[in-house]
Computed example of a mutant assay.
Amino acid sequence: MKTVKNPIKIYLALILTVICLFTYAHPFYVSITDIVYSSAKKNIEISSRIFFDDLEAALNQDGKTQFDIRKPHRKDVIDTAIAAYAKKYFKVSTNGQIQVLTYVGYEIEDDVVWCYFEIPQSQPVKKLEVSNRMLYNNFKSQSHIFHVTVDGKRQSTKIDNPKSFFKMEF
């Protein structure tokens, strides 16, 4: 058996291999959406966490514009663009009826954009159906993780491009 005389060369080779793997690793694209219904509030609150550069790329491609979400010249223009984009690619139905998302606003936290929406909901939610194609035109490996809470009962799911639909019953 041959013994290794220079462990530093092996250590350096290992470090270089790890660096190469991380350099060429494919990035992942994921958003996380919380959907919360409270019968006491008669309201569905939706908050989505999306990497700001991913959302920027999607808005810019979809609207053929150039937005800088972190340093907007006019925040109201970006608000309008996000609301229109969500209306086009994010659909919610409750108890078999399509709902209208009301865009509330967005805020930046580190590398993430928090987008907020509401849906008035006077009837208890028994069935929730969601279609989300946001970012799918830009990122073939896009995934969406959903955490849905209805009157304290929580369910979670994940959909990967091209799958864009899920339903839950409570």
Rank of each mutant, 00 (worst) to 15 (best):
M1E: 12
V4H: 09
V4N: 13
V4I: 08
P7Q: 00
I8G: 03
Y11L: 15
L12H: 05
I15G: 00
C20E: 02
C20K: 04
T23Y: 15
T23G: 10
T23H: 13
A25K: 14
P27R: 08
I32Y: 15
T33G: 04
D34C: 05
S38Y: 00
A40S: 10
K41R: 12
N43Q: 11
N43G: 09
S48F: 02
R49F: 02
F51E: 11
F51I: 09
F51C: 07
D53V: 03
D53K: 07
E56Y: 01
A57Q: 13
A57L: 14
L59E: 07
N60A: 04
N60G: 03
D62P: 03
T65C: 12
F67A: 03
F67P: 05
D68V: 00
D68F: 02
D68R: 01
P72H: 04
H73D: 13
K75L: 08
D76F: 11
V77C: 00
I78G: 04
I78L: 14
I78P: 02
D79V: 11
T80Y: 12
K88E: 11
Y89Q: 10
Y89R: 10
Y89M: 03
V92N: 07
N95A: 02
N95V: 00
G96M: 09
G96F: 04
I98D: 11
Q99V: 02
L101V: 02
Y103I: 01
Y103L: 01
Y103T: 01
V104K: 07
Y106I: 08
Y106E: 05
E107S: 13
E107Q: 13
I108R: 12
I108K: 14
I108S: 11
D110A: 12
D110P: 12
D110L: 15
D111T: 07
V112I: 07
C115M: 13
Y116A: 12
F117Y: 10
P120Q: 03
S122L: 13
S122N: 14
K126G: 08
S131M: 10
S131Y: 14
N132K: 02
S141P: 07
S141F: 11
F146R: 01
H147F: 12
V148R: 00
V148T: 03
T149W: 05
D151W: 01
D151M: 04
R154M: 14
S156H: 15
K158R: 06
K158P: 04
I159T: 09
D160S: 14
P162K: 03
K167Y: 10
K167D: 14
